[in-house]
């Protein structure tokens, strides 16, 4: 695994040198939280089962960060590195492909974690949000949702002929998912028909799982979400491996 740590560090630095990616990954969700918090506050509401809007928003917005990194940053970064010949240059060294992929995944995971931590911190400090779950359980759910979306992201990069097309596909999918999955607008607010459609959208299952685990649900209550996400991870991951190209 020679090269793994240095590559991880470099990838992370390069990510932070992209102002747009940095903004949407790290600052966008906390900003939304402050904005909607200022509008709705965090008073307990029977509509959310006695929880406040911000209590619901924080675990939901985790899905927002996951989809931003997984379906926008990752496919663009991967396809652009391929298109520019960066991957070709790595292949001409003894860097092992596994070391490359793992450090690539780790760098996107790191960015997602930073974004999520800042979101939770903002919620905690500004709105005193409630947390009723188990930290390890939430962490496991977060890792499942993140890796499932990374698999989809690598698949988009593998299928897209160019970085531009990866960007187009990734952004369209991401923006559709953001608004009808409960990641931005709570599912409870959406009309029944949209809620029905949302069941076919992977991000809905990330949001539902995160919200459930955040408030102490057991994994057994969310077998459906887990099944969908494990499916995305395995099928998406297998297809991503098949479609991955170095040049």
């Amino acid at each position: 695994m020679r090269g793994f740590w240095k590559l991880l560090l470099v990838q992370a630095k390069l990510y932070l040198r992209e102002p747009i990616a940095t903004f949407f990954t790290i600052f966008y969700a906390p900003m939304m939280l402050l904005l909607f918090g200022a509008i709705y506050g965090n008073e307990p509401s029977p509509f959310f089962g006695g929880r406040g809007t911000m209590d619901i928003a924080v675990p939901s917005y985790i899905g927002l960060i996951i989809v931003t990194v997984g379906l926008i940053s990752l496919p663009i970064g991967t396809a652009a590195a391929r298109e520019r010949g960066v991957l070709r240059r790595f292949r001409a060294t003894p860097l092992h492909p596994l070391a490359y992929i793992l450090s690539d995944i780790a760098s996107y995971l790191l960015m997602t974690v930073i974004g999520v931590l800042l979101l939770i911190l903002t919620g905690r400090v500004v709105f005193h949000i409630r947390f009723e779950g188990n930290i390890l359980s939430v962490l496991a759910g977060f890792l499942l949702g993140t890796t499932a979306f990374f698999a989809l992201g690598y698949l988009i990069a593998g299928l897209a002929p160019t970085a531009r097309s990866a960007q187009t596909v990734g952004m369209i999918l991401a923006f559709i998912m953001m608004f009808i999955s409960g990641a931005t607008i709570p599912l409870e607010v959406l009309p029944a028909k949209v809620r029905a459609i949302s069941q076919y959208i992977p991000l809905t299952h990330v949001v539902t799982l995160m919200r459930g685990l955040w408030f102490g649900d057991s994994w057994g209550q969310h077998w459906k979400e887990v099944a969908v996400l494990v499916g995305c991870l395995l099928v998406g991951g297998a297809l991503a491996v098949k479609t991955f190209r170095w040049e």
Partner: peptide, 16 residues
């Protein structure tokens, strides 16, 4: 590849 050095005709690094 540990023992050789390669300069490719077409390659690039990340712009930043």
């Amino acid at each position: 590849r540990r023992r050789i050095g390669i300069q490719l005709q077409e390659a690039a690094l990340h712009p930043r």
